[in-house]
Computed example of a mutant assay.
Amino acid sequence: MTELYILQNQEGLFLGKQKDWLDGRDRGALYKTPHRDEAVNLKVEVSAKDFEQRITIHSCQTDERGLPVIGADAVSSGPVASKAAEVESSAEESPSADAPASTTDDLPPSES
């Protein structure tokens, strides 16, 4: 088993091969490198584009398929799952954007 380096942000998400942030459940889609200097270079590059990101480099072992072994506590289900739950609950509570704000029943009768 060899050592790989992966990048994780302050929200617990991992950097993917396409430079997007993933929750870590699909380990094959994660950015991983056996070279720490490459991980540091990418950390600087991503941080320069989005200065609000707080990225850390994690070293991890590989499994028999060469994928990083990430602990269950490191795999993020919190921010992504909670964000989706917030969107669903707010959609249920708020009126639909397609619904009219008022109907003709709310208006007083017009004189014609």
Results as ranks from 00 to 15, higher is better:
Pro109Glu: 15
Ala39Trp: 00
Thr103Ala: 00
Lys43Cys: 11
Asn9Tyr: 02
Ala74Cys: 08
Trp21Met: 10
Ile55Glu: 04
Thr103Glu: 15
Glu11Ala: 01
Val75Thr: 09
Ala91Lys: 09
Thr33Tyr: 06
His58Asp: 04
Ser90Trp: 01
Gly12Thr: 01
Ser96Thr: 06
Val80Ala: 14
Gly12Gln: 00
Gln10His: 04
Leu22Ile: 08
Leu107Gly: 07
Arg36Asp: 12
Ala97Gln: 01
Ser102Glu: 15
Gly28Asp: 03
Lys17Trp: 05
Glu86Gln: 10
Leu107Arg: 15
Glu45Arg: 15
His58Glu: 14
Arg54Met: 09
Asp63Trp: 12
Asp37Gln: 15
Ala84Arg: 07
Ala29Leu: 05
Phe14Cys: 03
Glu86Lys: 14
Gln61Ala: 13
Asp26Tyr: 12
Val44Trp: 01
Leu7Met: 11
Thr2Val: 08
Ile70Thr: 10
Val46Pro: 00
Gly12Arg: 13
Glu3Pro: 02
Asp63Gln: 05
Lys43Met: 07
Arg25Leu: 05
Asp105Val: 14
Gln10Tyr: 04
Gly28Arg: 13
Gly78Cys: 03
Ala39Arg: 11
Lys43His: 11
Asn41Cys: 04
Thr56Val: 12
Ala29Pro: 05
Gly78Asp: 03
Pro100Gly: 13
Pro108His: 10
Pro34Arg: 07
Ser112Thr: 05
Ala97Gly: 07
Ala39Lys: 07
Lys19Asn: 01
Asp26Gly: 07
Pro100Arg: 03
Arg54Lys: 14
Asp106Gly: 09
Gly66Ala: 09
Gly71Phe: 05
Lys83Gly: 04
Glu52His: 12
Val46Ser: 03
Glu52Ile: 06
Pro109Val: 03
Glu88Tyr: 03
Glu86Pro: 02
Asp20Cys: 05
Phe51Cys: 03
Ala101Tyr: 00
Gln61Val: 11
His35Trp: 07
Glu93Ile: 09
Leu107Pro: 04
Val46Glu: 12
Leu30Asn: 07
Lys17Arg: 14
Leu107Tyr: 13
Tyr31Asn: 11
Asp98Asn: 03
Thr33Ala: 15
Asn41Tyr: 02
Arg36Asn: 07
Gly28His: 13
Gly24Asp: 07
Gly28Leu: 01
